[in-house]
Design a protein around this nucleic acid. Structure first.
Lengths: 392, 392
DNA sequence: GATATTTAGTCCACAACATAGACTAAATCG
DNA sequence: CGATTTAGTCTATGTTGTGGACTAAATATC
């Protein structure tokens, strides 16, 4: 049920309206904010005052809109006080970043580690060290970290902060949030979900409407962004594109099914064991016809799965990330062709394919971005956090 | 952007909180409402007073909770004043219903007409007559109709109230809202979407969480309900289950693709032309092995498509409606088996299959229910409508 | 260069709403 | 019958946004 609306909720709501407007439509004067939000100038002035005091907004010089009249003072999001920590555990690396309220990446670090060889406890200990170092660094920059999100390659229970099963890591029933023990609130989330959000906030997402972001790795995941928010499904396991059935009589998959997309377009289907995607790209660039053929087949299978996804979920755009980003020139054509052939007659608008603009850091950035998003959506909850903050 | 929160919005929000609580948790005393919503007794009393004055709530006798102390007065939704009109245009009938605020069906009427033989203008004129008759009848019952939703078998543009293309009706670019010209606000929506909502409000939906409702007819549509609201996708065309690819090399489909679910489990794939579903059911009940075999094949194909849907969209339950309701005993087994085989290993919870409890009226009822839902979600917008209302 | 005009931002009296707690009402318990 | 308990109302108060008057700072016009 929607919570009762009290006076404080009204206040919090309007703070969010003003901060959200600053976030979306750049620097604005108080007068313009009043115009855009429908609030009075008086109210906007008070709210902006509070945001500035909390270090979430700053004045940034006079602005003449060309017309006559007294010039206004531009107000914009401030990146000087509030920040977020993004962490990522993946098969062969740990990553961390600090992002400030204006979504500038202030620190970004990656550690190559073979996490399959280590126990979950060792991996989490390593992540804690990395996270703690990032928090120190953030403090050194004068930043107060509002929270932390951890990206994991597998389905997670966000309520308990634990992983039921992450086959790629070899994890089963690992409690992450508790074990991490960082001095900020911690949430965990699925890597594919966060990569989609990373694309939304740090890639081409702002110019996209609703989109489906495909994270091709060993498994193939997808994140669906609708109205600026993730669609998670009833249990948080939506977006398992890798196990969409491409051909019911196809080869057996590790999920127990047959003919899943993963068997046609996952990394293991494209690259012989021991090699990486870069090897494949090199062969493709050298003009190896067998490699091109394999990619075309994978692209066609991807196109079938995406057709199905479009029919069910109706995204506006489809962004290919992960291994499909470097393979885009060889994969996207056949995929788009399959979609056009199957969808073109029924739909006025067949979704466009696009490459991911964010590289391998999409999930890490999306993790931090999710905290920032939360702050912007409810600044009232974070005013205290930062009021007594560092220098300023 | 979320609208600015003004005083009136606070009021409207709390009215919705109270009315929503009454809707979900049955008759409650003012004290219990205060407890449940977090509002004070004073505030609840004022809000309840307004709701009673507007005819949206009534007091209904004293209540002793068994304990001692002064007994409270139970307050519940009132069905005596506010109502909604649901209309449906389908291939071979028109239907209409009047539903009151407490979601009781007050009038329900169906007219058998061959709408393929008539022009869209004639069909809409017929619907207008039916709708106007229902409005008269509602007025006779002392009901004020807050709005109307029209269910159509095809994708609609809800903003303009028009149908781009409804192949089953043979319609192309028909503006419905404008042509209908009823003296209440009119919206149009897709039949499969509304059938899902019909199941939510008039079937087993209340006990379900998030669910996918499959409407099998000549085409196969689906509506996904998440958090009590429809998931529509970017353009409102989500849920086209009928064109999910079951087998990429399968038979050609009228959509231009190949191997769509519709070709395996649509009405035309199960029943020879000229016959209806009832004929098939009769053969099945008589023990016709060929018919049972055909249903099993259709069920298996449905299971493959549903597996894909579960992977992408993660519903909690799947409700089979339309032609799959009478065929449930013969179709659900193979479908469930396919899903279990493909999903059981990965997922802790494989969605349950269930039969629709609402019959062919699901979409009509869902249409009216959507208006009721809107009133309950924002009673403030409808207070005036009913304040000067009929007798009382 | 002085004055009018225009736009930005602040100030102050006021209105809308929810709150807290005192108060009245109506039941059961002893 | 009085004590206790719970429901509901009443009154004074607090928080928040509003509207319009006011000040500030620019350009346009004469």
């Amino acid at each position: 049920m929607a919570p009762a609306v009290r006076h404080e909720a009204m206040r919090a709501g309007n703070l969010a309206v003003v901060l959200g407007e600053l976030d979306r439509h750049g620097p604005l004067t108080r007068a313009a904010l009043a115009e855009n939000t429908g609030l009075t100038k008086t109210t906007v002035s008070k709210l902006v005052g509070d945001l500035i005091e909390a270090g979430m907004a700053v004045e940034s010089g006079a602005v003449r809109d060309g017309e006559r009249g007294r010039p206004g003072v531009a107000v914009r999001l401030s990146g000087h006080r509030v920040a977020a920590l993004g962490l990522e555990i993946n098969v062969d690396y740990l990553a961390a970043c600090v992002v400030d309220l204006s979504r500038s990446v202030r620190v970004l670090r990656t550690q190559a580690v073979d996490n399959r060889a280590a126990s979950p406890q060792e991996v989490i200990a390593g992540l804690r060290d990395l996270g703690a170092a990032m928090l120190d660094e953030a403090a050194g920059l004068g930043l107060t970290v509002a929270g932390c999100v951890v990206a994991l390659p597998g389905p997670v229970d966000r309520l308990t902060g634990s992983v039921h099963s992450a086959p790629n890591l070899g994890w089963k029933d690992v409690a992450v949030t508790g074990a991490l023990a960082l001095p900020v609130p911690v949430l965990v989330d699925n890597e594919a979900n966060l990569a989609a959000l990373g694309e939304l906030w740090f890639g081409s997402g702002a110019s996209l409407g609703d989109f489906l972001h495909v994270s091709g790795e060993i498994g193939i995941g997808a994140g669906l962004v609708v109205d600026g928010a993730l669609f998670r499904g009833a249990h948080g396991f939506a977006g398992e594109l890798g196990h969409v059935v491409v051909s019911p009589d196809g080869p057996a998959c590790r999920c127990g099914g047959t003919g899943c997309l993963e068997r046609y377009a996952g990394q293991d289907a494209l690259v012989p064991p021991g090699q990486g995607i870069n090897d494949l790209v090199r062969r493709l660039q050298a003009g190896d016809p067998g490699a091109a053929e394999a990619c075309a087949r994978a692209g066609a299978a991807l196109g079938v799965a995406l057709t199905t996804a479009v029919n069910l979920v109706d995204p506006d755009t489809i962004v290919l990330g992960g291994i499909f980003a470097p393979l885009y020139p060889w994969v996207s054509g056949p995929a788009a062709e399959a979609m056009r052939a199957r969808l073109g007659q029924m739909r006025a608008h067949v979704p466009t394919l696009a490459v991911s603009r964010v590289g391998g850091d999409a999930a890490t950035l999306g993790a931090a971005g999710q905290v920032i998003q939360r702050v912007i959506a409810d600044p009232g909850a974070y005013l205290d956090l930062t009021a007594g903050g560092t220098l300023g």
